[in-house]
Simulated scan of single mutants.
Amino acid sequence: MKYKQRKKALILLADGTIFHGKSIGKEGTAFGEVCFNTGTTGYQEIFTDPSYFGQIMVTTNAHIGNYGTKDIEVESDDIMIAGLVCRNFSFEYSRPGADRSLEAFFDAHDKMAISDVDTRALVRHIRDNGAMNAVISTDVDNIEGLKKQLADIPDMNGLELASKVSTKEPYFYGDENAKYKISALDIGIKKNILRNLAKRDAYVKVFPYNAKFEDLEAFKPDGYFLSNGPGDPEPLVEAQAVAKEVIDRNLPLFGICLGHQVIALANGISTYKMHHGHRGINHPVKNLETGKGEITSQNHGFAINREETEGHDDVDITHVHLNDHTVAGIKMKSKNVFSVQYHPEASPGPNDSTYLFDQFIENIQNN
């Protein structure tokens, strides 16, 4: 490829730490909470996952962009991250099936990316000091101005973001003649979740984040689903009200990630912001019911309180994260309800966790 002049760029963290790099293409400034993902592949899925809305993504893999992008390999219709920070950015790609380069993909979505950053040092800093707000910018001579702007960015703790990524109007997914009907609350839903439900003979109606139980019930579904999504689960009072109503009526309910946290809150179990979260495709989880281990994909910065979960009369812990023993899955003893804190549809195992979708369908059949 032709050599092109690239502007200097930087990432400035809320604690004042600065790392220098170069811009990929788009010039300007982008703000968000800085976090990192340890996956060695799947960058396109990461960048389009609504759960990452409002976050500046640092990729720990040294090379990003080497296999380009494919139009069907997206989890939403937009790049959801606020910006990208990487070590080596590949402007050319070597994948025959790719539709375009990652650079062209970012340009099409008007998103900022910077490279040539010491991401190893940056990730170590985040691991030691926690996830925090940050800014990436080509305005490298305006450090004090960037610091002032960064100080005004709201903290992720207490921030409601589901409304920013949820559908505005209900829509359908799958075959309308399918055997099962599912009402899904979109608080940041990934397309591959819908694909997995449709693959199991389900016709899904997807509702906006603030839909009421009556809206979901009007579809006359066989089961209810609460999706993944970004931000703090605590402000999602409408979603919690939906979960409570489904639970009270003992209807089949399945939640993933943010949906899992909403189900916990609906049961009076609190959530908390993690130090730097879980984001990657090799997180080890143990299924306490089967004793089996699962290699899982995770991307969350909040978790549910383990002590409160263990002390709850009607909730069992079904899965635990083996690195830090956080709660990775729960089920209700007296209700047709279960949820997990990871992504079975992402298939990093590759099929370690897809049984959860089958379990949901079985719960519907047995209701």
Rank of each mutant, 00 (worst) to 15 (best):
R6I: 04
T38C: 04
G28V: 04
P50V: 04
A14Q: 11
T69L: 04
T40M: 12
C35N: 09
G28S: 06
D15C: 13
G42T: 08
T69Q: 12
S23Q: 08
V74E: 11
A9Y: 02
Q55Y: 11
P50N: 13
L13P: 01
F47S: 07
K22S: 12
E45F: 13
G28L: 05
G16N: 04
G32P: 01
T38I: 13
L12M: 02
L12H: 00
E45T: 14
T17V: 14
N37H: 09
A14V: 01
T17D: 07
L10E: 03
V74S: 10
Q55L: 13
G54T: 03
G39E: 05
L13W: 00
T40F: 07
K8I: 01
G42M: 11
G54I: 05
E45S: 14
Q44E: 15
Y43R: 06
G68L: 11
G28H: 05
S51D: 06
G39C: 11
F19L: 05
E73Y: 12
F36M: 03
L10V: 03
F36Q: 00
I64M: 13
I11W: 05
E45D: 12
Y43V: 13
G21L: 01
Q5H: 10
A30R: 02
I64Q: 06
E45C: 08
H20I: 03
T29N: 08
F53Q: 01
E45G: 11
I11F: 01
F36I: 04
I64R: 11
E75L: 15
I24G: 08
F36W: 08
G68C: 10
I11R: 00
D71E: 15
G21T: 02
H20F: 08
T41V: 14
G54R: 04
S51K: 15
I56V: 10
G39H: 03
G28Y: 09
M57F: 00
H63M: 10
G68R: 14
K26S: 06
K7R: 12
K22V: 04
I24C: 11
K7V: 03
V34L: 12
I64N: 09
Y52L: 15
I72A: 07
D15S: 11
G21K: 00
T48M: 11
G25V: 01
T41C: 12
T40L: 09
E33Q: 14
E33C: 09
K70Y: 05
V58G: 01
G16L: 07
L10Y: 00
T38S: 15
E33S: 08
R6E: 15
T48W: 08
F47Y: 10
S23K: 06
T48D: 08
Y67C: 13
P50S: 06
S23C: 09
I46K: 07
D49P: 02
F36T: 04
T41D: 10
A62E: 14
I56R: 03
A30S: 15
I46N: 10
D49V: 08
T69G: 08
G21Q: 01
G39I: 06
R6V: 06
T69A: 14
G39D: 08
A30D: 05
G39Y: 01
T60L: 13
S51A: 15
V34I: 15
D49Q: 05
E33D: 12
G32E: 07
I18G: 03
